[in-house]
Design a binder for these strands. Structure first.
Length: 294
DNA sequence: AACTCGTATCATATGGCTCA
DNA sequence: TGAGCCATATGATACGAGTT
């Protein structure tokens, strides 16, 4: 993919918010299909397709010859929600807002981490540095639990703020932030923030991992310890957003972690982590267990 | 010294907003 | 409609004074 984009999308300038993300996602589908076609066995029978509008998720993996009915998911193996994050922006904030109820067991989340990268003095190209591809549900559960831990809530059956009768309430499961404002357009109208349709902060791919306070941080640590998918996602985000990792643990924690590894605990968080990562390349796996609530 | 507490300062987390 | 930016309350940290 990078080979192709280096050639095709090489340009001068390279603006943010350019829609490059969608292009990269489309390209991913194209290359996946090539790969599938080149495989033997059952993989050959499958292909990735775009989902029509108004469907949760972006792509579906279907059986080529089967009848496909997007409305009922008939003929589909699983869906993929694709997100891209431009590492060059101040606050990359792709939103993964799919609800549990919109997600089935084998659905996947794809995150492409890219940035405009210098090709030579004058030209840049959109390089994909890394990616996450894994089951959606563990990420969704982690996101939701952390949402609750920071004081947010979800609309519950029979308790819709709009006062819908529970039989036809479409708002159940919709996230509300701590001040009770809806976080998606489809949330209850009475919870619309003034001046804006919805708050739009739920499910930020980096932001959802942030914690403040003890409770949230122990939820974070528990999820990281208990679920390998969550751990992989966290590790990837922390690799590319190093400050997030620093913020997740206090100075004294970094010190005791260093101490446990027999590494100098001098300096600030950043220096301590540098020292750790130099001699313990897999320190994120150690972080996972060292700070696991028992 | 080591330990606790209060305070000032600074950074982060998070709600809200704009823009195309 | 999503990506990106801005504002600000809250929380973390360093530091100094008081205490053991």
């Amino acid at each position: 993919m990078n080979e192709f984009t280096a050639k095709t999308f090489r340009t001068r300038g390279g603006r943010l918010g350019s829609g490059m993300g969608s292009l990269l996602e489309a390209l991913w589908v194209y290359y996946m299909n090539n790969t599938l076609a080149g495989q033997g066995g059952i993989a050959r029978e499958c292909e990735f397709v775009w989902l029509p509008d108004h469907q949760p998720a972006d792509f579906a993996c279907i059986i080529r010859k089967a009848d496909w009915k997007p409305e009922s998911r008939e003929g589909e193996l699983f869906r993929v929600e694709a997100k891209s994050m431009n590492l060059g922006v101040d606050e990359a904030k792709g939103h993964f807002t799919n609800l549990v109820s919109e997600t089935s067991r084998f659905d996947h989340l794809l995150v492409l981490l890219w940035s405009w990268t210098e090709h030579d003095k004058h030209y840049v190209w959109p390089k994909v540095h890394s990616y996450f591809l894994g089951p959606s549900l563990p990420i969704i559960r982690m996101r939701d639990r952390l949402h609750l831990a920071r004081g947010g809530s979800f609309v519950e059956t029979g308790a819709c703020p709009d006062g819908c009768s529970s039989a036809k309430c479409t708002h159940v499961g919709e996230p509300l932030n701590e001040s009770g404002k809806r976080e998606r357009r489809s949330g209850p109208a009475t919870r619309k923030p003034k001046g804006v349709d919805y708050a739009a902060n739920f499910g930020g791919l980096v932001r959802m991992l942030k914690t403040s306070g003890k409770e949230a941080s122990s939820v974070f640590r528990e999820m990281r310890a208990d679920n390998t998918v969550c751990h992989q996602y966290i590790s990837l985000i922390h690799e590319f957003y190093p400050d997030e990792e620093l913020n997740q643990y206090g100075v004294s924690e970094w010190r005791s972690f260093a101490k446990s590894l027999g590494i100098s605990e001098a300096g600030d968080k950043g220096e301590i982590r540098d020292a750790i990562s130099q001699s313990v390349p897999d320190y994120r796996d150690r972080l996972r267990t060292f700070f696991a609530p028992r």
